[in-house]
Design a binder for these strands. Structure first.
Lengths: 147, 147
DNA sequence: CAAATATGTATCTTTTATTATTGCATATCA
DNA sequence: TGATATGCAATAATAAAAGATACATATTTG
């Protein structure tokens, strides 16, 4: 698993924070979050940095410290989580510095870059239609469907 | 560059074949294609396998052998190239086998899987709107815009 | 027929993005 | 002051993908 799992991991963390908030739990520690996503606290904290910068979560240091949502779950879209977590990493990357020899090799890089941009926008549009609160509700529905 | 560049590479190969066809060139060798994409013939041939199975290209063995489009460029969509090249590889993968401990950890896997499916469909829809012939035309436009 | 040269394919190595681990400074509360 | 949290830097381990190599097989040409 050396695939990039930052977004799914950040999403699960945010869902855990949303659930905690809904249940009246003040905050979760990075160790608790790490246990939930089956990873380690350092990785969790690295993911938290950009989420905090975006104001999506808030953390308190020291004993009894931890993390909680920065705003209500209904005010956070999955698109915001995605953007905060991945920055401007493109979904697709093409080969770079292809030697220019013909019509194709001279222009594919820009062509593919434009295409990749369209894909990114399309994905972000899709993600921005859903809030964290929606997602938590979907989890409850899925849970109810379990046998 | 250990990022997955199979789709951009396959796309460039297909564009080269489309250009060759438009210019009356019968076929290109995997070595020529490899030079164009700045890679090696083996990688090119590996990419060609699924494209041939999908009927998008046709190859002839032996001396003077090589590859050409299987059908007209106007009849091939970028979606078909993508599907043939990547098979059913998902655009996103989540963590797997997360220990089930709460509402979130019990259901995120399916939730994220469904989300990833939606994203895949969205991307494929976008890619299927464009044919290889369209793409070649865009390359010409980009080329004309170059200073 | 034989030489040249292409594809088809299996195997092995190299590369590198990403995750995991470790260590420690700093902050906070009881 | 001790326990325990975050913040952060540095290093190691992992694995997906590309690259390299080797060779069997097919096809054309002289």
């Amino acid at each position: 698993m050396m695939i990039d799992v930052r977004f799914p991991t950040a999403l699960q963390m945010m869902l855990s924070l949303a659930l905690a908030q809904a249940e009246g739990v003040e905050r979760l520690s990075s160790a608790e979050l790490a246990e939930g996503v089956d990873s380690n606290p350092t990785f969790v904290r690295r993911l938290l940095v950009p989420l905090m910068q975006a104001g999506l979560v808030r953390s308190t240091m020291g004993r009894d410290g931890g993390v909680s949502l920065g705003v209500d779950a209904a005010a956070i879209t999955l698109g915001e989580i995605y953007k905060a977590t991945l920055g401007d990493k493109k979904l697709w990357t093409g080969r770079s510095d292809i030697p220019h020899r013909c019509l194709v090799s001279c222009n594919v890089e820009r062509f593919f870059g434009d295409l990749a941009d369209e894909v990114d926008e399309s994905v972000l549009r899709l993600l921005s239609k859903r809030t964290l609160a929606d997602a938590l509700l979907e989890l409850r529905t899925l849970d109810a469907e379990r046998v």
